[in-house]
Design a protein around this nucleic acid. Sequence first.
RNA 1: GGACACAUAGCUCAGUUGGUUAGAGCGUACGGUUCACAUCCGUAAGGUCACAGGUUCAAAUCCUGUUGUGUCCACCA
Length: 885
Amino acid sequence: MLTAVFLIFMSELAPTYDAKKYEAAIYQRWVASGLFNPDNLSLPPTAPNYTIVLPPPNITDKLHLGHAAMLAIEDVLIRYHRAKGHRSLWLPGTDHAAIATQNVVEKMLYKQEGKTRYDYGRTEFLRRVWQFALPIQTTILEQIKKMGASLDWSRLAFTMDEPRQKAVRHMFVEMYNEGVIYRGERVVNWCPRCQSTLADDEVDYREQAAKLYTFKYSPDFPIPIATTRPETKLGDTAVAVHPQDERYQQYIGQTYSLNFCGQPLTLKIIADRSVDRNFGTGAVGVTPAHSLSDWQLAEKYDLPMVKVIDTDGLLGHNLGQFSGLSTLAVRELIVAELKKQGLLIKEEAVTNNLSVCYRCGTPIEPLPSKQWFVSVDKPLDRLGGRSLKTAAYEVAENGQIKFIPQRFTKRYLEWMDNLHDWCISRQIWFGHQIPVWYRGDEVLVSETAPTESGWTQDPDTLDTWFSSGMWTFSTLGWPDNWQKGQKLGDLARFHPTQVLETGYDILTLWVSRMIMMSLFALGEVPFYEVYLHGLVLDEQGHKMSKSKGNGLDPVAMIELYGADAVRLSLLIGVTPGNDCRLGTSKIESCRNLVNKLWNIGRYILSIVPNKAVFVQNNLDLSQTTLADRWILRQFNNLISAISNYLEHYEFSLASEALRDFTWHDLADWYLEISKIETSKEKFNILAYLFKNLLILWQPFMPFVAEVLWDELAIEDNLLIAPWPQPEDMNRQEKLDFTLVQNLIVEIRNVRSLNHISPTQKMKATIIAGPLAEALKQETEIIKNLRTGLEAVTIVASGSIPVSSLSGAVGPLSFYLEGQEMSAVNQEQLEHKIQELSAAINNLNRRLHDPEFLSKAPEHIISKEKNKLISWQAELEALRQQLNNQ
RNA sequence: GGACACAUAGCUCAGUUGGUUAGAGCGUACGGUUCACAUCCGUAAGGUCACAGGUUCAAAUCCUGUUGUGUCCACCA
């Protein structure tokens, strides 16, 4: 009969867990259940809300392991809070990633057809972009599902779908009406070849040999300056010096009109602390139109801007002999002219960093151009007179938003502090086109296109972070759910979100924008906590990249090892804000852990008399042995440890604690002992442990947990099984330490008894070891000590067959070698005894040190005292063991 | 140039407000296994916690300095 049952069972669950066999079907079942949608969970109205918006992946490429890490972490959080009974929403979506996507497509089209976007025209080019991006978007969504992510697909969003387009236009108009968005001139990074502006992070730097020229503008100008770009000096409108520079004090504030190489210049002498007194002559020629930093100075001191270089990279009109020439040609002409006039003081070789276009390598020409800006300094009534910058600074400073790890708070604050107005217009086609129309001198800023003819829309598009900056609330129905300053519907229930989990690399780019935009739109923070994960590197510590071919494809890894193993490998041994290395060997070891849980399940299912034990919830603790109480205590500790770790985003510690309990406490020890003592209580305890262990594991490895849960034949879906609470272990009393001491000595004695066989000794050892360990930890338990001893004695007396101890066969043979090993053992023993005695001496000294006794906290002292007792007992046991040899 | 991080076993990393004889996984060596799992079990070797000072009864942990590695920011006339 038993064999028959066993065979049926074997036919159901294979000896090794085959992830591929189950995962797709399980995910489908989850989606069909509708339980990813918090609206479908039957929760009391008082249930706390818990929201995470998924940082939307760019639709430029398939997911990489960084995304997988993000999904693993967020799914753990969501599943944990769902189990805790929170109204948990995890909202999915994708990002159109304006520049990134356009670049990929432009490159691809150029490679395939040799054409630029201008050859296609705006409409056709955009059609091509969509043709490229939409299939990738579909793939991404499929990949997310493969990871087991419990996202609410009914709320799927995209930064360029209709609701988000509407939100973006609404936001633009609202900001414009408040005077936060304005159009202005600013020096931008201009690539003369691509005929386009570049964002700061699209600029590459190339080290090159250059010449630093020191010269005077004209014979009667008092301050010599140094530059590597003499041609731009035609556009200088000021000379800046350090305010404390004695050499130039007398000139500060004066204005000079002079002739520089045949061109008239008017220069004001200004003082600014940004000037380095030790570089060159300590004076800077300020060229507002052709240097970003000079432009900032010009803004600060209200200097005029003279543009001398055009968008084609050539010198502009009205520059006489220089007009229409290239910058390099003009540089030579000017140097020659200065030499001729005897104004050139010095010419020295230097290396400097040349800014080049990251795409074509052309040197960048900083140029003034008309752009749209978000003012970060304008005081706003809706923010109580504070600016976006101040408000966004304050929420981090006063702890309304916490960063994990904390050190990123500082980085955020520094960045915020130095923030300038945010240029939101981009000269690219893919993205949200700016909702502004022009007709002659008329400007119309509107959510909808004008119906009259003659209007043309601004050709520029918005910075991609403008739309993703609204992600926490544009996905929750803003602006429709925002009426008269009141949040409605989803927005009311799920905003602010609980935590934003993302990579630290976009802390400034994205996180800061989200904070500002949410403060502007809703007057509240977008999230309370920001958890920042690191990059996933390859085994050698290099960034994974397609060109290097060193990237691991998460989907391929899932195929090989299963989603649970991949998820776990991205959680275990990983700390927030730090990069981590990942190779197949780590995923493999996680796969082994998944399989271990699987086999624990198989075994428990094979020994319990019927599955009813899994359904009942109350544990009868009256007949428990010390072993039982030990494992239950371990488990209780585990529950509170895991919950505590998860509350503090310590995923690595949580998964390691789970692993250690599952593998070493439960499988290696308690399951082995349960092969000796089987009782009704044992089945109940095993069932209780295993059932709840699945719930604890479920956030980390949801697929295998779900499969095993099914086997337990409990009705509830694991997805919503409530998070276990620690059992009430209240029948505990203070333990007499002497008793423990005696007990441990006794256990050691059993191991060193001569009249029992090595086999029996071995069995005693495997049981006594953890028991002694247990006693060290379970110092409150006194009631059932005798049972624990009995267990040891039973085994030691040989009344249990060897076959019942399959796990002990290994160490058994080790002991059977007996004699050969004894020499080695003796040495090792002596060594250990020496070490231990030394440690005891140290400890003893400390415990008699009056300073320690008076200054150390009470709990430390008592801990140290306990330690001494157990060490002494251990030492005694070791000595006896040595004598017996 | 400015800021931040990291340096712990052969490798990858943990180490929670300072308090066990500093831990895990992988790897290595040795031994075992028909009866849940070789994706298994047992045992062991291996660390001056980068270096030098300081604070403390007590430092891998806090402070200062040095060296090495990495990241971000500014790119500078």
